[in-house]
Amino acid sequence: MEITLNHYLVLSTILFAIGLIGVMRRKNLLMLFFATEILLNAVNIAFVAISHYYGDLTGQMFAFFVIAIAASEVAVGLGLLVVWFKRTSNIDLDAMTSMRG
């Protein structure tokens, strides 16, 4: 029972779909951030698995940069969340309609 690249790609797809479900159904901004973290982690698994099965380090490099991007996204996103919460004491996504687009 050999674990192949397709096993990892299927797992990555399932996790990405779980993240998409989270993005679709969440109305709380903090919970939406959780769902985006799941999306980024699913992609990381695919990158590292491809890196392993093709014997190429490029996938690990990309996973590394994805982690860096995720960290800075959290810092800026939480800063914006704190500012928004201080002003409105609510982080419901449906209430963020100040641009009236």
Partner: peptide, 8 residues
């Protein structure tokens, strides 16, 4: 942060 947010 979870106050007043209803999942619809």
């Amino acid at each position: 942060t979870t106050r007043g947010v209803k999942e619809k």
